[in-house]
Design a binder for these strands. Structure first.
Length: 493
RNA sequence: GCGGAAAUAGCUCAGUCGGUAGAGCAUCAGUUUCCCAAACUGAAGGCCGCGGGUUCGAAUCCCGUUUUCCGCUCCA
């Protein structure tokens, strides 16, 4: 990371706090690690990003519908999805090599070696001890076994081990008043499962025909081992996911289509294309048959913003198995090869999953500019957020040029009419130039100034954030001028 | 989780040898009425992250802890 980009990132974080975009959670109590709150401008920006996504995905596609599923779900769902077993391994670190191992894996290796060396008795004894420890979830016992059997790190060769810890990325809590094993529920680690378990409900009640999609925006929770880099990795975060259900065999074609469609969505905001790249997963997760990430070049390097995964029929098949409910879809369309309908099958799924918080950060970084406005006479600069007008938290600010002569009253009148349609701010404090700069800092695309001439001919000046140019326009035309620039048509057509 | 660094006003940061905290910007009120950070006057804002210890005395030294950043690690 070069000094200047490092500096830039720090400045964006400071700016985000100073102007009410992002605060650390529970700051007055020293903060809560890797949890953040969105402030008055941040929540507006975040909502606008959500709206852009929702409109692009749901509203613009006749065959995609949205849902809003609960964060709590039946615990068995997480067994079916692989989240319970797949990420609750006992881990141990070697302090010298700084490598992390699965404790049971280390013991298994040792058992194998005992067997090979003909020490069958020892092998059996260790196997028994280990099974007992695992069954009882006795982590301390697992560590004892590693120490007792003098297991050394294959890299460092030392036996300088940490405690054995259970890493489970899911947060759990109890449902019901009495704490009981059976009442454990998890906070969802992804929103996708809420879509899968509702797939039949939506398909039937919405009379959806394949291919169709179900979209959802919502919070997800992961108890990350380490969470850093501001809001890049948070313990509580928000995802915007769409699962697209397709006929088996067509997944590649839809995968390619969504891969392109999603990148276009990003680029429509005006981001330089070289800031984005695809990253192909070479090592695929157990449920996937293809996976690409859309990565953005953050100041600290390219990071995943969105994943497009071909999830096969893994999730639906698993839910069919665990719930004993048929997850199949009857496809009446005629297969040209056989001349018969495609019939019953479990659909394949293409997933697009974007991290809303990362998208938010990306948008802030992209928009942030420290502009040098110095002339020969004086030094001058401004911080401006060049947000797309559709995303800007405040669409326009209305200023009386001065605080008297009836100008504030006139400005209020205009404000009252426009605020029905647009999120506006009114300011009369300080010199006009300062007010302009304050709006630049939060990315407001327009500033409307009411001056003495306004009282005579009902015209105002409108000042553009990006060019700092001003124009004199009729008050009556303001709705259209602002409306045109902040219309979603600019992004969706 | 390991190693390193840091934490002082809303933001960016000073703070000497251990002697009870400052600046710039920002904020608020007033004067001024001006189209790109104007000026002037005034005000508010800090248990120096938190908890211990050493000391007559700690923002400063020591220990612990929390949070943040960097590297490694992790990320079904």
């Amino acid at each position: 990371m070069s000094k200047s980009t490092d500096e830039l990132f720090k400045n964006v974080i400071s700016h985000a706090k100073e102007y009410g975009f992002v605060f650390q959670s529970s700051e007055i109590y020293d903060g809560l690690s890797a949890v953040y709150d969105y402030g008055q401008n941040g929540s507006e920006l975040k909502n606008n990003i959500k709206t852009y996504w929702w409109k692009a995905m749901v509203q613009m596609h006749e065959n995609i519908v949205g849902i809003d599923s609960a964060i709590f779900m039946h615990p068995t769902i997480w067994k079916a999805s692989g989240h319970v077993d797949g990420f609750s391994d006992p881990m141990i670190d070697n302090k010298d090599s700084k490598k992390r191992y699965r404790a049971d894996q280390l013991l298994e290796d040792k058992i194998e070696r005992y067997s090979k060396d003909g020490k069958t008795e020892k092998a059996e004894k260790l196997q028994y001890d280990m099974d007992e420890a695992l069954k009882g979830e006795n982590l301390a016992r697992l560590r004892e076994l590693i120490i007792e059997h003098e297991i050394a790190d294959p890299i460092s060769g030392t036996r300088n081990w940490t405690e054995v810890r259970q890493f489970n990325l899911m947060f759990s809590t109890q449902m019901g008043a009495i704490a009981d094993e059976a009442d454990v529920v998890y906070l969802r680690p992804e929103t996708a499962q809420g879509i899968f378990v509702n797939y039949l409900n939506v398909q039937k009640s919405g009379r959806m025909k394949i291919p169709f999609g179900i979209a959802q925006i919502g919070k997800a929770f992961r108890n990350e081992v380490i969470a850093r880099q501001f809001i890049i990795r948070m313990r509580e975060f928000e995802q915007m996911e769409m699962q697209y259900f397709v006929r088996p065999g067509t997944q590649r074609e839809w995968f390619d289509k969504w891969k392109e469609t999603r990148l276009k969505w990003h680029l429509a905001l005006g981001t330089a294309p070289e800031k984005y790249r695809y990253h192909e997963h070479t090592k695929l997760a157990f449920y996937a048959d293809a996976a690409y990430d859309i990565e953005f070049e953050f100041p600290f390097g390219f990071k995943e913003v969105e994943g497009i995964h071909s999830r096969t029929n893994y999730d639906l098949s698993q839910h069919q198995k665990f719930s004993n409910k048929k997850m199949q879809y009857f496809d009446p369309e005629v297969d040209p090869e056989t001349g018969k309908p495609y019939g019953n099958y479990i659909p394949y799924v293409i997933e697009t999953s974007i991290g809303l918080d990362r998208m938010f950060l990306l948008t802030m970084i992209n928009a942030y500019e420290e502009e040098d406005l110095s002339t020969e006479e004086k030094q001058d600069s401004r911080v401006v957020l060049r947000l797309h007008p559709c995303l800007a938290p405040v669409k326009a600010a209305i200023f009386p040029l001065i605080k008297k002569d009836g100008l504030p009253e006139k400005a209020r009148q205009i404000m009252d009419r426009l605020k029905v349609d647009f999120n506006l701010q009114y300011e009369e404090k300080d010199a006009i130039g300062k007010r302009y700069r304050r709006q630049d800092a939060i990315g407001t695309p327009f500033c409307i100034t009411v001056d003495h001439q306004t009282l005579e001919d009902d015209t105002v000046t409108i000042r553009y954030r990006d060019t700092m140019q001003q124009e004199r326009v009729a008050v009556a035309d303001l709705d259209k001028i602002i409306g045109d620039k902040v219309s979603w048509k600019n992004l969706l057509s």
